[in-house]
């Protein structure tokens, strides 16, 4: 892993505010920000691992737990009025995940987020980079089944 992380860091090396870019690339590469990556980035940028974490944890789209797919259910006011709580409950029950947790088989991570800009079709969720609107609990589970492979 160190090799790959180093390549990512070097790609950004001529830019001043490069930490965020590096973190994005790492998440794209590994699906999350591994603990080991935080230590390597810190060492290469001559900052402390805590500083990396301080910055990364500010943004809710950076993730620190390993999961194959990330489900982000919107619980903004519009989605909430349209029943997002039921969607969340259904996913929790189906996969046995807690909010902020990862399912036992490492397949799904569940996060509850504020507004993902899909107020045109509430309630909505993101699975990785794909967004889905006009959900019902059944439809949400059907969509997720498609990611189980």
């Amino acid at each position: 892993m160190e090799e790959r992380i180093r390549e990512i860091i070097l790609k950004h090396s001529d830019r001043d505010a490069k930490l965020l870019g590096i973190l994005h690339d790492i998440q794209d590469e590994f699906g999350y920000i591994p603990r080991e990556a935080i230590d390597i980035v810190a060492e290469w940028l001559s900052i402390s691992p805590g500083e990396v974490y301080d910055t990364a944890s500010f943004y809710s789209f950076f993730r620190f737990k390993k999961a194959k797919h990330v489900i982000r259910v919107c619980n903004g006011i519009v989605c909430n009025l349209k029943g997002s709580e039921e969607i969340i409950r259904a996913i929790k029950e189906r996969y046995g995940i807690k909010e902020g947790g990862v399912s036992e088989d490492g397949l799904f991570a569940l996060e509850i987020v504020e507004c993902i800009g899909r107020c045109d079709g509430p309630p909505a969720m993101l699975v990785d980079d794909d967004s889905y609107g006009n959900l019902t609990p059944q439809r949400a589970l059907e969509i997720l089944r498609g990611y189980e492979e």
Partner: peptide
């Protein structure tokens, strides 16, 4: 200059 205590979240 220790950078040990940091903030998590927002």
């Amino acid at each position: 200059e220790n950078h040990v205590l940091v903030r998590r979240g927002r």
